[in-house]
């Protein structure tokens, strides 16, 4: 019984102490729970600097995210589709950073090359004929292929118009093909621009060469 009395008394004292603490807390000034003093005392210029830095960081992250999203899209687009829907999925090709960008750039390069080739072909089909220049230049080119400098390459066809000539050339080997343009342009009387392309049949030992008239450019429209 005596123990019960002491227990009730202890509980009552604890309740009084809790009420006291609660009342003190409720009267405490608001400054007591304000953020640390350091934040308030920071100069506006410093905060502005930090804000600028955070904005820059955010922008950088956004750009990075955009790049990654584009890479993912292009890799997904380039991935070969399995013809056997029931078979196991093909193992993913290992990719290095920038592979997708390089592949896209290579695709763009090849598209531009095809565009330039089409332009040269169009010029050959639409240019008027300067009969005298064409005859003389065709003779000059044909004669050059009879000489020792162009041994290893055979002229299959030459056709000149007003500013452009096209040559179809067969080569004995890759070395002859590699050196063709330089050897050809050393022929006295041939000056100007020259471009070598693989022949239409895609054979590595045949070439299509476009030559411009001396002092003229090949009819290629430059992009700005």
């Amino acid at each position: 019984m005596r123990q019960v009395r002491w227990g009730v008394l202890g509980a009552a004292m604890a309740a009084v102490a809790a009420a006291g603490v609660w009342s003190l807390r409720g009267n405490a000034p608001e400054t007591a729970i304000a953020p640390p003093v350091a934040t308030e005392s920071r100069a506006p210029a410093e905060l502005e600097r930090e804000l600028r830095a955070l904005r820059a960081e955010l922008e950088s992250l956004r750009q990075g995210q955009g790049r990654l999203a584009r890479q993912v899209e292009s890799v997904e687009g380039a991935a070969p589709r399995s013809v056997n829907a029931e078979g196991p999925p093909p193992a993913p090709e290992p990719t290095r950073p920038g592979d997708a960008e390089r592949a896209a750039a290579e695709e763009a390069r090849q598209a531009r090359v095809a565009e330039l080739d089409a332009e040269l072909e169009a010029a050959l089909h639409t240019e008027p004929l300067d009969a005298e220049w064409a005859r003389n230049t065709e003779a000059l080119v044909s004669g050059a292929f009879q000489g020792p400098d162009l041994a290893g390459s055979r002229l299959a066809r030459v056709e000149c118009r007003t500013r452009v000539c096209v040559l179809e050339v067969e080569h004995e080997g890759q070395e002859a093909r590699a050196e063709l343009l330089d050897s050809l342009m050393r022929v006295r009387g041939l000056q100007g621009q020259a471009v070598m392309r693989p022949a239409a049949d895609g054979s590595p030992l045949t070439s299509r060469v476009y030559l411009s008239r001396a002092g003229e450019r090949l009819p290629l429209t430059l992009r700005p």
């Binding site: 590699a178 050196e179 063709l180 330089d182 342009m185 050393r186 621009q193 020259a194 471009v195 070598m196």
Partner: peptide, 21 residues
């Protein structure tokens, strides 16, 4: 005096030239 400017593929194959004297 004649000079030829050239662009070559990585394997050395001439791809385009321009020549003047």
């Amino acid at each position: 005096v004649c000079c030829t400017a050239a662009v070559s593929e990585a394997d050395g194959t001439y791809l385009a030239t321009a020549r003047t004297c």
